[in-house]
Computed example of a mutant assay.
Amino acid sequence: MLAPETLVRHELAGLSVRVVDAAHEGYVGVEGRVVDETANTLLVEDDSGVMQVQKAGATFEFALDDCETGDVSYAVVEGERLVARPARRTELTGDSKWR
């Protein structure tokens, strides 16, 4: 189940996200849907296009919809916790530091 506590172990593509703080001022306030992810960046799409945001040095707020209740909760995550290949970060076995 996708919850704020387990967000870093899940696929981020498709989630709504907002950059709440960043070392690069141009990233602050970027808001939209995650359309892709690399080891070091999130690609966030809004009405004006897609922006590539560096994970390290940024703080993200993800909106998590509860399909059963319709409630929305928010998870604030330091970008450094997301820096890794998506497949490596989300794996459940092996020597991943995200287990």
Rank of each mutant, 00 (worst) to 15 (best):
V83P: 01
L43Q: 14
A56K: 13
T93R: 13
V53I: 15
R99F: 06
V83F: 06
V77Q: 03
G70T: 05
T41R: 08
R89P: 02
V50D: 04
D66T: 06
D65H: 13
A87C: 10
Y74M: 09
T38L: 01
A58Y: 00
G70V: 09
L15N: 04
R33C: 11
N40L: 06
S96E: 04
V30M: 10
L2R: 15
D36Y: 05
N40G: 08
A56L: 09
E80K: 13
R88M: 11
S73N: 09
D36T: 12
M1S: 14
E45V: 09
T6Q: 09
W98Q: 05
D65S: 11
E31L: 04
M1A: 14
D65I: 11
L92C: 10
W98P: 04
A87L: 12
V77Y: 03
L12S: 00
Q52P: 06
Q52W: 04
L82H: 02
E80H: 11
R81F: 10
R33H: 09
A3I: 14
A75H: 01
V50I: 15
A22S: 15
V34E: 00
V17F: 01
P4M: 10
T59K: 11
H10I: 02
H24S: 12
V30D: 09
E68V: 12
E37K: 08
D47W: 10
V76F: 02
M1K: 12
A63C: 05
G14P: 07
S96F: 03
E78Y: 08
T41S: 11
L92G: 15
V8S: 05
G49M: 06
F60V: 04
A63V: 00
A13I: 15
E78A: 12
A56N: 11
F60P: 01
A13F: 05
E37G: 08
N40I: 01
G70K: 03
T6I: 11
E11T: 02
A87F: 07
E61N: 06
G79T: 03
A39S: 14
E80V: 08
L2W: 07
T38F: 01
P4S: 10
F60W: 00
Y74D: 06
S16G: 14
Q54R: 13
A56I: 03
F62S: 01
A84S: 15
M51F: 10
V17A: 03
G14L: 07
D21T: 03
G79E: 05
A56R: 14
G26E: 15
A63M: 08
E25G: 08
M51Y: 08
K97Q: 13
G57T: 04
L12R: 00
R99A: 13
F60G: 05
E61M: 13
E5T: 11
G29F: 02
F62T: 02
M51E: 15
G14C: 07
H10K: 14
C67G: 09
R9A: 14
D21R: 08
K55E: 05
R33A: 13
E68R: 11
L64T: 02
A58T: 13
R18D: 08
G94S: 05
E78G: 10
V28N: 07
L7H: 02
G94K: 04
E25H: 09
V28F: 02
